[in-house]
Design a protein around this nucleic acid. Structure first.
Length: 432
RNA sequence: UCCGCGGUAGCUCAGUCGGUAGAGCGGUCGGCUGUUAACCGAUUGGUCGCAGGUUCGAGUCCUGCCCGCGGAGCCA
C-alpha cells in the first residue's frame, strides 16, 4: 500500500508511489490519455492516466469520473514542467469514492448571484480557496502579534443587554422574556478588562443591522479590538501601524502563490511598512477642498469618495485623527482646548479601500461621560457598570477595532467583502 | 431606505417593428498519447421571475408585486 500524502507535501515524494485522497477539479479526455486535475484541500496536482500504465478497470474509472467526484488516486510523483504546478502523478491505480452528478459550478463563467447561492460549493474554487487561506493567515498573524506584545485575549459577550454605541442598528433577540442584542463591539467590556489586565484584545463576530448595501458592508463581520490602559491616541496609532504592517508582510511572505491566484499587484503591499502618515481632520478637509471637493464643509463626515481621495495621496495606509466630536461616539476624549474635535483616529487603506480601523482615546472624566450619555439620550441604567470604571482607578486609555473582512479585501485586492468570509451575511441574505 | 440597471435552457447571454424560442458553454454519445476554461462531430435541453391587463396574436406594450446586481447614506 502506498502512503497517503497531501498535495502540499508532494515535492518531498518525487520518484515515490503515493496515494492521494481528493476531488476532481477538472479533466481533459484525450482518448487513451486522461489529464485529471486533483485537489485535496492543500493544493492541486495534475494526474495523468495512460491506458497502458494501469489496470483496465482503473482506467475506465478515470475515463468516466466527473467534476468534483471524490477519488483515491495512486501513482508515482514526477517533476514535469508541462504540469501547471510543476509536478505530475503518473497514475497506476484510480478509484471513485462517489461519482458526482451535474456539479453546478463549471470552469466557465458564472454570475455573482448564482455563485453566492452556491457558496458552499464555490469555496472549492481556486480563487475562493486562496482568499480564505489568506484570511486565516491574517487572523493568525494578528493574534500572534498581539500575544507577542503583552496583550491578553479576553473574550467579550456576544449577547448584550444594551447598545455599545446606541441606536437602531442592533439585532434584537429574546432573552428569557427580555430583549437582548447581538454585540456591535466588545469595546466597553474591553475598557473594563484593561483595568484588570492592562492590555487586552477581543476577537470575534460582530453584528450590525444596518440597511447598507455596499461592497464594504456585511451584517455579520469579524473584528479584532485591542485596548490599552495608560495609553494615548498616539500610542494606539503606533500599535496599529506596527500590527497592520506585520500582517501585510506576513501574507507577502507566506502566500505568493495565493496572491497570484487572486491576481494581486503586490507592489502596493510591499510598500506597507510602518510608520504610516498621519493627517489631522482639519488638514484632510483642506486636502479635499484642493482636490475635487471645493465646497466640502468642515464638520461633515467623509463618504467613500472622500476617503478614496485622501488615501490616494499616499502609497501606504493613512491615519486621519482629531475628527469633529459631534459625529463620533459618546466616549471619545475631547482634545484639550478644542472640545469640538476629539482624540479619535481612523486608518484608511490605500487604493480606495477606505476605513479598516476606527479607534481613539476614551473619555477619562466621570462627569463629562455622564453628560455625554445624557446628550446622546442613552439609558443611564445600562451604563452604570461602565461608569464604575471612572470611579475606581480611571486612567487614560485607548483602543481600536480592525475589520477583518475589509482588511482581507484590501490585502487580496478584491472588489467586494463578500468573498472574504466563508458564508457572508448581507442585507436580506442568509443562505446558505 | 433612496436612485439606476436587470430577471429568457443547468450556466453566460442574444432575441430587431408585437407574428413559429436562439447561440456559446455544460450534460450525453462518438473520435483523439500532452491537455491547461483542450479540440472535432453528433445530440439533449424552455413555467421567457410572478399576477393581471391591452391585442386576432405578448419574451416584446401597460399596471402591480417578487428577486438579483450596481451606487448612495451609515459604518469596521
Amino acid at each position: 500500500m502506498a502512503p497517503v500524502v497531501r498535495i502540499s507535501d508532494i515535492g518531498q515524494h518525487v520518484g515515490q508511489t503515493v496515494t492521494l485522497h481528493g476531488w476532481i477539479y477538472n479533466r481533459t479526455d484525450k482518448g487513451r490519455l486522461q489529464f485529471i486535475q486533483v485537489r485535496d484541500g492543500s493544493g492541486t496536482i495534475q494526474a495523468v492516466a495512460f491506458k497502458k500504465n494501469m489496470p483496465e478497470a482503473a482506467f475506465d474509472e478515470a475515463r468516466r469520473v466527473t467534476q468534483e467526484s471524490s477519488v483515491v488516486a495512486t501513482g508515482s510523483v514526477r517533476e514535469d514542467p508541462r504540469s501547471p504546478t510543476g509536478y505530475e502523478l503518473d497514475l497506476s491505480d484510480f478509484a471513485i469514492v462517489q461519482l458526482a452528478q451535474d456539479y453546478p459550478i463549471t470552469p466557465k463563467e458564472h454570475g455573482v448571484g448564482f455563485l453566492m447561492e452556491h457558496r458552499h460549493l464555490w469555496l472549492r474554487s481556486a480563487r475562493q480557496h486562496a482568499i480564505i487561506r489568506i484570511r486565516a493567515t491574517i487572523i493568525r498573524s494578528i493574534r500572534n502579534w498581539l500575544d507577542d506584545h503583552g496583550f491578553t485575549l479576553v473574550d467579550t459577550p456576544i449577547l448584550t443587554p444594551s447598545a455599545a454605541e446606541g441606536t437602531t442598528t442592533l439585532f434584537e433577540t429574546d432573552y428569557f422574556g427580555t430583549p437582548a442584542y447581538l454585540t456591535q463591539s466588545g469595546q466597553l467590556y474591553n475598557e473594563a478588562n484593561i483595568m484588570a489586565f492592562g492590555k487586552v484584545y477581543c476577537f470575534g463576530p460582530t453584528f450590525r443591522a444596518e440597511k447598507s448595501k455596499t461592497r464594504r458592508h456585511l451584517t455579520e463581520f469579524w473584528m479584532v479590538e485591542p485596548e490599552m490602559a495608560f495609553a494615548t491616541l498616539e500610542d494606539y496609532m503606533d500599535v496599529a501601524q506596527d500590527m497592520v504592517s506585520t500582517i501585510v508582510q506576513t501574507v507577502l511572505e507566506k502566500h505568493q502563490a495565493d496572491l497570484k491566484t487572486v491576481e494581486r499587484d503586490t507592489t502596493w503591499l510591499e510598500k506597507v511598512v510602518a510608520p504610516f502618515p498621519r493627517l489631522s481632520y482639519d488638514d484632510a478637509v483642506a486636502l479635499l477642498q484642493q482636490n475635487g471637493f471645493p465646497d466640502f464643509p468642515w464638520g461633515e463626515d467623509f463618504g467613500a469618495p472622500h476617503e478614496t481621495t485622501i488615501s490616494n495621496q499616499y502609497d501606504r495606509p493613512v491615519f486621519v485623527y482629531h475628527y469633529p466630536t459631534h459625529f463620533k461616539a459618546f466616549y471619545m476624549e475631547p482634545v484639550e482646548g478644542r472640545p469640538e474635535v476629539c482624540r479619535s483616529a481612523d486608518l484608511l487603506a490605500p487604493e480606495g479601500y477606505g476605513e479598516i480601523i476606527g479607534g481613539g482615546q476614551r473619555m477619562t472624566s466621570l462627569e463629562l461621560l455622564e453628560q455625554r450619555i445624557q446628550e446622546h439620550k442613552l439609558p443611564r441604567e445600562a451604563y452604570e457598570w461602565y461608569l464604575d470604571l471612572r470611579k475606581y482607578g480611571s486612567v487614560p486609555h485607548s483602543g481600536f477595532g480592525l475589520g477583518i473582512e475589509r482588511t482581507v479585501a484590501w490585502v487580496c485586492g478584491l472588489e467586494h467583502v463578500r468573498e472574504t468570509i466563508p458564508y457572508p451575511r448581507m442585507l436580506e441574505k442568509i443562505y446558505p
